[in-house]
């Protein structure tokens, strides 16, 4: 089995022309990179998947989109599909992550959330040091997608807030969620509420939400 092989690879594939530093890509990384598993090849119908999450931006050099199909009773992840604008490490680690989450009937959401980047790295047989940051993209996209699932199923308490300040505590909507809504083009309360329903059940937070929308709209569209 490929995933039991934890030996670091011997073959150096890329040498940085500025530093001469070698980048080692293991054979497992290469296998995932050239034959990525669970890719979303065709744009799916809305009803085909239960949740979706997007993180990153092409300007930063990486973006990840992830779709989930979840068994409502067992909360097992039955399908995990993805697409990325990213480097070899991002592609390989997401491919490996998608296998880990869905193999053997699928992990439960709670199990999958506990996967540490370290475990993806182990499965890949290691990544070059400077590429480790590329491997966390999968986990981030997964957390976004899981939060989307919790929202869509009305389990607002379980939405992952990841340290960001919670603005609407009934729906567990954070400052970061509002920032992202603005980034996606929602620059007034109406548009943001269409996306997030923020403040609909808690009118007392609306003033703060509007303030945040103004702040981020100024910041990104100034």
């Amino acid at each position: 089995m490929l995933n039991k092989n934890k030996k670091p690879a011997k073959n150096a594939d890329v040498v940085n022309k500025n530093t001469g530093e070698k980048w080692y890509y293991s054979d497992i990384v290469k296998d995932h990179f050239f034959k990525p598993r669970n890719l979303m090849l065709k744009e799916p119908k809305k009803t085909q998947y239960d949740a979706v999450g997007i993180v990153g931006s092409p300007a930063c050099g990486d973006q990840m989109k992830m779709w989930l199909k979840i068994d409502k009773k067992t909360e097992r992840v039955k399908k995990l599909k993805w697409r990325t604008f990213g480097c070899a490490s991002a592609i390989a680690s997401t491919s490996a992550f998608s296998e880990m989450v869905t193999e053997n009937n699928g992990m439960t959401i709670e199990e999958a959330l506990k996967i540490k980047p370290q475990r993806i790295m182990e499965r890949l047989g290691g990544l070059p040091n400077r590429k480790i940051h590329c491997s966390v993209l999968a986990d981030k996209a997964f957390r976004k997608a899981v939060s989307d699932y919790f929202r869509k199923t009305g389990q607002y308490r379980r939405v992952l807030t990841d340290g960001s300040k919670v603005i609407d505590s009934k729906l567990n909507i954070t400052e970061r969620d509002i920032e992202e809504a603005v980034l996606e083009g929602a620059t007034n309360l109406n548009a943001v509420q269409k996306k997030l329903k923020v403040g609909i059940g808690s009118p007392e937070v609306i003033a703060e939400v509007e303030q945040l929308i103004r702040f981020y709209a100024e910041k990104y569209y100034g």
């Binding site: 890329v14 990179f33 092409p58 050099g61 990486d62 604008f85 990213g86 480097c87």
Partner: peptide, 11 residues
């Protein structure tokens, strides 16, 4: 557009 250089280089 839409692709990342390092991936293309390695392919």
């Amino acid at each position: 557009l839409d692709i990342e250089g390092e991936s293309a280089l390695l392919y």
